[in-house]
Amino acid sequence: MLKIENLKVNYGGIEAVKGISFDIKQGEIVTLIGANGAGKSTTLRTISSLVKPASGSINFLGNDITGIPAHQIVKAGITLCPEGRHIFPDMTVLENIKIGAYLRNDNLDKDIEKVYDLFPILKERNWQLAGTLSGGEQQMLAVARGLMSNPKLMMLDEPSLGLAPLVVKDIFNVITEINKTGVTILLVEQNANMALKIADRAYVLETGRITMQGTGKELIENEKIIEAYLGKQAK
């Protein structure tokens, strides 16, 4: 479905992503794990065309989408829930949800109902300004907003960041649920343990290079991974 080949991304003179290749198949949950500064966010931002790659190619559903404008990426069916959520704080919850469907011209009522079923708490907060939501609620809103574009591929950048363990569990449950409705997932996480548990496959990114890959199950049992990313929480 998504095929990345030899992708390189620079910021000024600094190489943040140094030629990575990976692919995602329809219906999978794929996770990208790695330490701070490994280039995970950069990879997602490049797929979304917020950043232009120095070289390499991105292919989605058979089309070369490298470097096309960001709004066309959304139109093609890729959505990104960015790191730090980036909801619109001075819009209401409902407006945030509606703006997720910015490129659609059809009736939204059904889909709004659907995301409210997925996140009942948001329905209660319908008219509240999004900036006044709790961190967990903001993350749910970011996911709900992303869903409104009817994505084929949903990318999530550290959805568990700064959230209490119980809320993290909720978010991961929702991600698997979304996946079951047919949306392919690319998940970037610091919380490697949780991510590997729900992932079909995983890639490990280290300072701009992919150093390991395998199924979620393989990696969660891998000695090196346990040592570097899972620590004690593995057991």
Partner: peptide, 23 residues
């Protein structure tokens, strides 16, 4: 209006606005 919504979004957050498909 939709264009008004995109103005508010862009004035708040360039990148998030682009992620919504706003030009």
């Amino acid at each position: 209006t939709k264009i008004g919504m995109s103005m508010r979004a862009v004035s708040r957050d360039y990148e998030a606005a682009q992620l919504m498909g706003i030009k």
